[in-house]
């Protein structure tokens, strides 16, 4: 049951005016999962979503929905609904008629429509707003109407294209939780597009990191954060120090002019690698007991922690710490083997 593949993308490629936007994408989406397409703008995440929604057609490859190829099925015949980036509500209709739009097309009896619309308004906490014009609502409320308008059709899959992008930070956090709990309660598959890595980590079951039309890594939020596959993923998800290094042998790596014990193996001997160390995993200790020593070049207060840039001669380390050391002082740095993550070097694009 857990492995039931609802949507499969096979070798999908897409060009716009000679620019390759998607290059041989392979991906499957399980039933009832919350999958996030994550990446910087221009990485192809929105195009992927639009291909699933039917608004773009792939140049090559297949889109398979529930075992059937749907490449040529127009959007209005697909069992998916979309929440658009800027809501795309119909301004000439009031809130109730916006939500009822899809049901009216299905020629559902009026009473049934009213019942369902009321239920949806309730679900998005906007009961009593039915008669309001959509222009009179705030951004957050319009967003919820857009979600209600899509969900009322009981789609098997809900596509969301950066739905929270236009909201302020606090509202965005609230809506993230609301969306996640909605998805769990209704048991609908969500495919979510965002460039906000924190949002992706908070909400997703599976994250697909995309860059330059390629899928960089697919995994759970924890895998993606703890074991990024390459320097791009490590850099995009959270903050990190990425050093060029050499794998001396299994479980021993050399970088920044120093050998460190690590837990990774299987890279071969004297192989070039990228090394990731998260800033919060570097411990500041006395100069005498550090694995490496360096001078603090700058200190920034970030609220929860201080961010310090520490120069160890041939490398600069970014370190997060709750205690501050003054600029210019010498400190020692320690990293436990478990927190050193080794990756194959990125192919130069």
């Amino acid at each position: 049951m857990e492995e039931q593949r609802l949507i499969t993308l096979e070798n999908i490629s897409k060009e716009f005016d000679g620019n390759t936007v998607l290059d041989n994408i392979n991906l499957y989406i399980r039933k009832n999962e919350f999958l996030t397409l994550l990446g910087p703008s221009g990485c192809g995440k929105t195009t992927t979503l639009r291909i699933i929604g039917g608004f773009e057609t792939a140049d090559t490859g297949k889109v398979i929905f529930d075992g059937k190829e749907i490449n040529d099925v127009p959007p209005y015949k697909r069992r998916v609904n979309t929440v658009f980036q800027k809501y795309a509500l119909f301004p000439h209709l009031n809130v109730r008629d916006n939500i009822a739009f899809g049901l009216k097309i299905k020629k559902m009896p009026k009473q049934e429509i009213n019942k369902r619309v009321d239920k949806m308004l309730d679900l998005v906490n906007l009961s009593g707003y039915g008669k309001r014009s959509v222009d009179s609502l705030s951004g957050g409320q319009q967003q919820r109407i857009a979600i209600a308008r899509a969900l009322v059709n009981e789609p098997e899959v809900l596509l969301l294209d950066e739905p929270l992008g236009a909201l302020d930070l606090k509202l965005r956090k609230e809506m993230q939780l609301e969306l996640k709990s909605m998805q769990q309660r209704l048991g609908i598959t969500f495919i979510y597009v965002t460039h906000d890595q924190e949002e992706a980590l908070t909400m997703s079951d599976t994250i697909v990191v995309m860059h330059g039309g390629h899928i960089q890594q697919i995994g759970t939020p924890k895998t993606i954060y703890d074991e990024p596959k390459n320097a791009f993923v490590a850099n995009f998800i959270g903050e990190s120090n990425i050093f060029k290094g050499t794998m001396v042998r299994d479980e021993l790596v050399e970088f920044c002019g120093q050998q460190f014990v690590c837990v990774d193996s299987g890279f071969g001997e004297n192989a070039p690698v990228d090394v990731v160390v998260r800033p919060e995993d570097v411990m500041l200790v006395g100069e005498d007991i550090g694995q490496v020593t360096g001078v603090i070049r700058s200190v920034l207060f970030k609220g929860v922690h201080y961010e310090m840039m520490i120069d160890t001669g041939n490398c600069v380390w970014k370190v997060h710490s709750t205690t501050m050391q003054p600029e210019g002082s010498r400190v020692g740095l320690n990293v436990v083997p478990f927190n050193i993550h080794i990756m194959h070097p990125m192919k130069e694009a």
């Binding site: 127009p74 209005y76 979309t82 795309a88 509500l89 119909f90 301004p91 739009f101 097309i105």
Partner: peptide, 17 residues
């Protein structure tokens, strides 16, 4: 809104509708 037409298709409307 540039997506209004697509939103209509998405909700099941034919291009003429």
């Amino acid at each position: 809104n540039s997506h209004a037409y697509e939103a209509a298709l998405d909700l099941g409307a034919t291009p003429v509708y």
